[in-house]
């Protein structure tokens, strides 16, 4: 049997386009997730009881919002956010339209990961910085973030991998990407070969992301 007979339904050009779309969605949404989730996580930790900027109200509100977004299934969030996406990026369909819901879906998740790694930072080190006359901003930028660096990198890796999965649902709003291809061709049209190829590519992507992430974590972990 010829190799090509196994993959009769494969349109390699479509696969590469979908691959590009997935990478584009994952890259841009990871960037924005980090930009929103990192400060959010820092703020949650700082306002928590017994911490530098202890503030019950702010802490409760932030925590509540994070929990709300974390409890909505992504597929629902994607649809619920259509009007918001329309206002934000001018369209509610296509690859770019998938980015706002991806970011809003994963930023709270990432914020929790940031929170966990910041809480791991030794209280004594924060106290040391205070005793040396550090301002709150200096404590964040020179103590908390550097000390939590490898944990935050691990968090970004986890988020990146989760986003690869989320993009599969972006097809619902015409977002494209590998997952969309797998659903529309592989599942709905029973083209098993498309299903296999797209899945394998996604597995490879996840492996690559995870390996790179682990490498960076090891590089920055000095403990």
């Amino acid at each position: 049997m010829d190799f090509n007979d196994l993959f009769v339904n494969i349109q390699w050009a479509d696969i590469w386009t979908a691959c590009g779309e997935t990478l584009y969605m994952v890259a841009i949404s990871t960037l924005f997730t980090a930009l929103i989730g990192l400060p959010l996580g820092v703020l949650v930790v700082l306002t928590s009881p017994g911490h530098l900027l202890q503030n019950r109200l702010v802490y409760a509100v932030l925590s509540f919002i994070i929990n709300i977004f974390r409890s909505i299934p992504f597929i629902i969030l994607l649809i619920m956010l259509i009007p918001f996406t329309q206002i934000l990026v001018g369209t509610s369909i296509g690859v770019t339209a998938a980015i706002p819901p991806l970011v809003i879906g994963s930023a709270p998740f990432f914020a929790r990961l940031v929170e966990v790694s910041l809480r791991e930072v030794d209280k004594g080190v924060i106290e040391m910085a205070q005793s040396m006359g550090a301002t709150t901003w200096q404590i964040i930028s020179r103590v908390l973030l550097p000390e939590a660096r490898s944990g935050i990198i691990a968090g970004i890796t986890i988020t990146l991998v989760a986003l690869v999965g989320y993009t599969a649902m972006a097809g619902v709003i015409g977002g494209g990407g590998l997952g969309d291809l797998a659903i529309r061709f592989g599942y709905q049209r029973f083209q098993t070969d498309v299903m296999i190829v797209t899945t394998v590519i996604m597995i490879v992507l996840v492996q690559v992301f995870q390996t790179l992430g682990d490498k960076l974590v090891r590089r920055f972990n000095r403990k």
């Binding site: 106290e127 040391m128 550097p146 403990k223």
Partner: peptide, 24 residues
């Protein structure tokens, strides 16, 4: 608070568990 930060620079402190920055 800001005057205290300045005053604290005149007072060094060392700790039982050293409290060094592990990432530096």
């Amino acid at each position: 608070p800001s005057q205290l930060q300045t005053a604290r620079r005149e007072i060094g402190m060392i700790f039982q568990h050293f409290n060094l920055l592990s990432s530096a």
